[in-house]
Design a protein around this nucleic acid. Structure first.
Lengths: 205, 205
DNA sequence: GTATTTTTCCTAACAGCGTTAGCAAAGGTA
DNA sequence: TACCTTTGCTAACGCTGTTAGGAAAAATAC
């Protein structure tokens, strides 16, 4: 009775072709413009067939979300393996992560929900420039106080902004699990304090 | 000729009511579910009237985007004003930023494009947990090497992840402007190096 | 005060979306 | 050959952003 096997194989083929077409469409037009109808068109089946393989559109995106994390994990592990000293390992991981995000922009967007409409010219929004300036002015002061001539203020501003943005957004989309009776709020405060201490130390050497 | 003035005033009133209704809808149903038709319904005008005041839907969101940055800037300035010592100022700014993001989640999402479908349970995705584990194992090693007993590994992992996520996503949506002949790539490398150095120093005290 | 022009605002449509009900045809089974 | 199951389609529902075109109202001119 090879019939059942063949059917399963064919079903899997259709499923794969859905994912493949979807991925191609995402790369061509961005995941914002992915639609079931376009996928159906690409796989040369009618729309409802897609729903025989995935409950809904989100289920398709979830597959890529997971693939993204899988891939990122793999790359981090690989980077870790290139070094033997722990500190070097950590360094390699950081670079690998960075690299991943820029080599796989689509994945990264899918994983962390970037890609807002109008975010391309975000850097030019005057209100944004103004609020960055607030940070810049203070950092200049701190740098000037500690006599650290080598510090590049613009660089430090970006570090500061980036870091706190990272802390905040990770905490918004994946709040820390409480552990050992420490509340989430306390944990957040600890993370924030940790960051500030480290950053200030780095500013004044 | 007060007629022209009255007309302008009325036009402004409609515009304001569009924004007000839109904001209410965003708060009630999230900005993903905002629609022109719902706005038209709320202001008790027909759909095309909305287009007399805004070119398209994105233009409405852009207003809130800017308002968000304006508000954030204001709050940072206020926080800055509560302290006199520069380091304390910077600390206050960090806390104010953090505070802003959680008190104005909708604004923050609008400003930095969070709010992916299915991001609520992101923390449970096994592939994510696995990739976090890669970082965790290395950080444990580093902490164990330097004899720093006080360091909380889980905390450090979150700091690391958050920070590098922040660096990456800020660089994706608002790439740094080149300055003084330094290329973007060089600048990114400097920021990344800066971060790694600071982080490692913080790990081993 | 009536006629004309401008402004205001609505109905209705186009093209697209995610999703599903229901039916025809093809495939496998007895 | 007759029956049943699976497969995959058409067509629809209710939503979306956006726009064309016309009716009614308001302002202006005579």
């Amino acid at each position: 009775m090879g019939i059942a096997e063949r059917k399963e194989r064919q079903k899997k083929e259709v499923r794969d072709s859905i994912l493949q077409s979807a991925w191609q469409l995402v790369n061509e037009e961005g995941w914002q413009n992915l639609s079931i109808r376009k996928i159906a068109d690409a796989i040369e089946y009618s729309v409802p067939v897609v729903y025989d393989h995935f409950e809904n559109k989100e289920a398709i995106l979830t597959v890529f979300n997971r693939r993204g994390f899988q891939l990122l994990g793999d790359e981090l592990r690989a980077a870790k393996g290139t070094q033997s000293e722990p500190k070097k390992k950590l360094e390699a991981i950081a670079f690998a992560y960075w690299d991943f995000a820029f080599r796989h922009k689509e994945y990264y967007q899918l994983m962390f929900g970037l890609g807002m409409p109008g975010c391309e010219e975000l850097a030019k929004v005057p209100e944004l420039v103004a609020f960055i300036e607030v940070i810049g002015s203070v950092i200049s002061q701190v740098v000037a106080e500690g006599n650290n001539r080598s510090a590049d203020v613009q660089l430090k501003v970006r570090s500061f902004w980036s870091t706190i943005h990272g802390l905040v957004s990770i905490n918004l989309l994946a709040p820390p699990s409480t552990h050992e009776g420490v509340s989430m709020d306390q944990m957040n405060k600890m993370i924030l304090n940790d960051f500030i201490m480290g950053f200030l130390k780095g500013l004044t050497e």
